[in-house]
Design a protein around this nucleic acid. Structure first.
Lengths: 194, 194
DNA sequence: TCGACAACTGAACGATCGTTCAGTTGTCGC
DNA sequence: GCGACAACTGAACGATCGTTCAGTTGTCGA
């Protein structure tokens, strides 16, 4: 097998083990067994465990980034672009494949591991910037402060919906939440109930 | 020292270590050093590591539960009760004290540990039930389906705001998010932008 | 055919893990 | 003063961890 293929096989195994047993249970031996390779081969392809875990989270994040980019490629209507962008994170690939367990693990590890925090933060910044751009086009009447607030709230709600899905997998709650997300972004100014 | 006091000292140490190094770094020896007790004493008071971690998360969750209950004790106005309840999770105790790092670790561990998932789930159910009750009183015109949707969305947004706070600690974003939460719960029906 | 080299193996290493347990300390009632 | 008992200590255990490395396999170009 070529080196590149083997690396992907190993990263697949890392993801599978993290999803099943968490980062705590992701030992080099577990990964080797899951990937059906020898223990030494992992160290041959990756400098150490830290590098391996970071690479796995980076690849998982890249998949999400690509899905977001592709989702708006052939959509012209500005509001539809916002909706497509939001919903791209909730495609079958990311809901069925235990992908969110991986992301929640990432959030937790990022708290103590600077390298993984960087992976998380760079994606967050990129996602937020893209969302602000889409909102600006869809709702040119809003000022930048309002747009920033809406994008932050939408991302927060998105993460919360992810969390609830990982817990309970309730499709109705998911759809209601996504509608709410669209309303936050595209709806009228806040009511100011206070 | 009495047994009860020592147990609390040990649980304090567990929390401190998890906040600093994550659940991965929370070894019995680390906890013992942090609590300034011997290694054996931890096993004397707690059956095993699993029991210890669960007890720490249970106590942390209990603190949040108590704060939520107390927040509405002396508030009469129905809408103000909703606001107080929502904001009780964002008191100084929970924002300053690295408390949220603990909760995010809990979310991750709950994915693979049934006992901790039970701690998380029971609090979630309790919180959601209380919130639905408060919404019902504040907005008796809404039907149960709408109330359920609003409470789920509010909890999701709350968790997302927590996550963002743990990452960036931006007070403006926090306040904007909380206002949005209040709007979701107390505002007019959704616009239905689609 | 054969050297060169990337890909791969698995035993072995020291470190650290959770748990156990014989032994020590301190504090009571009697 | 003295047994009883809860509280506490730390050395020791086997298991598992990440990492290393001498050795094997397979595949090419010369």
């Amino acid at each position: 097998m070529s080196g590149g293929e083997t690396q992907q096989t190993i990263l697949d195994a890392v993801q599978a083990v993290i999803v099943r047993d968490g980062v705590r249970g992701a030992s080099m031996r577990q990964v080797a067994e899951e990937a059906d390779v020898s223990l030494g081969l992992i160290s041959y392809h990756f400098d150490d465990k830290e590098t391996l875990i970071v690479a796995a989270f980076e690849r998982a994040t890249a998949r999400l980034r690509e899905a977001s980019e592709q989702s708006i490629e052939h959509v012209d209507d500005p509001e539809e672009r916002v909706r497509a962008f939001l919903r791209s994170s909730f495609g079958e690939e990311f809901l069925d494949g235990d992908y969110l367990r991986l992301r929640i693990s990432l959030w937790a590890v990022a708290l103590t591991d600077p390298a993984i925090a960087a992976v998380d933060a760079s994606f967050f910044e990129e996602y937020a910037t893209a969302l602000r751009g889409l909102i600006t086009t869809a709702r040119p009447d809003l000022d930048q402060g309002e747009i920033r607030g809406r994008s932050i709230d939408a991302i927060a709600l998105t993460n919360g919906i992810w969390l609830n899905w990982a817990r309970y997998r309730n499709a109705d709650d998911l759809e209601i939440g996504l509608r709410r997300c669209e309303d936050i972004i595209l709806g009228p100014p806040q009511q100011g109930t206070r």
